[in-house]
């Protein structure tokens, strides 16, 4: 490939004018700016590459990424009108949340005989499949949001539900009973509402104003299914 890229230059020096005299007369005028256009992007990319990540230590890189993820978590917990979550999206946060939730929803024993509970793979697939479906739906409704931005927002907005799952597991350590269930129900409902509110705060602006309800409905359904899984979870 490198040779192929260099070959135009080689050809220019090696072959004398008569070869391309005709071509240049026909298609390209003798103005210089075209050359300038071509060289500038390469140089700028190189500079950026040098200055940003190559020279710093691995620890710095990881800390920077973790800080970015943490900042986005804060945005979800305290949703404001901000575009940080949309502008520089990443899928690390969603991955972490998804894996955490799926691990917590996994039952203690692998008893295939009597196992109606969600398995790791099931939770994982539901989360990603649901997010992709919602994203496609919002694209079809005419939203001006990119595919991964939407995935990022939906993934990060699982955070309240993951917290709810954590609380539920703690509550389940206490003895079971109606009080126990009521506490869990309350926590899950609050966190469910939180998730919906956070995701709509980020996603609603990308939709045409008259269609917000249509785009929000599948989001509601998605988080409802997840909350339902969390509420009905019982460790063996």
């Amino acid at each position: 490939m490198a040779e192929a890229a260099e070959s135009p230059g080689d050809r220019g020096t090696a072959s004398p004018r008569p070869l391309f005299a005709g071509l240049s007369d026909i298609s390209i005028s003798q103005d210089i700016p075209i050359e300038g256009e071509i060289t500038i992007p390469m140089r700028s990319r190189n500079r950026e590459f040098d200055s940003s990540t190559l020279n710093e230590s691995v620890r710095n890189t990881i800390m920077r990424d973790l800080k970015a993820v943490g900042k986005k978590f804060m945005h979800v917990l305290y949703p404001r009108k901000s575009n940080t979550l949309l502008r520089d999206w990443d899928l690390w946060g969603p991955l972490i949340l998804c894996v955490t939730l799926a691990l917590m929803l996994q039952r203690g024993s692998v008893d295939s005989e009597k196992d109606g509970g969600p398995q790791f793979a099931e939770v994982f697939v539901i989360l990603w499949f649901g997010a992709v479906t919602i994203t496609l739906n919002s694209k079809l409704l005419g939203g001006n949001i990119s595919f991964f931005q939407s995935l990022c927002v939906l993934g990060y907005c699982i955070l309240p539900l993951t917290v709810a799952m954590l609380i539920c597991r703690l509550v389940l350590l206490a003895e079971p009973g109606p009080v126990n269930f009521t506490v869990r129900l309350f926590v899950v409902i609050v966190m469910f509402a939180w998730s919906i509110a956070a995701s709509t705060a980020f996603l609603a602006d990308s939709q045409p104003p008259n269609r917000k309800a249509l785009a929000v409905y599948p989001v509601f359904l998605f988080y409802f299914v997840i909350s339902w899984m969390i509420l009905t979870f019982t460790p063996q």
């Binding site: 009597k114 109606g116 099931e122 697939v125 339902w228």
Partner: peptide, 17 residues
């Protein structure tokens, strides 16, 4: 899904979803 959960439906091969 909701109904399967409340009825404790057991599916041997495949998931509820």
């Amino acid at each position: 899904l909701h109904g399967m959960k409340t009825s404790d439906t057991i599916i041997r091969e495949g998931t509820l979803m």
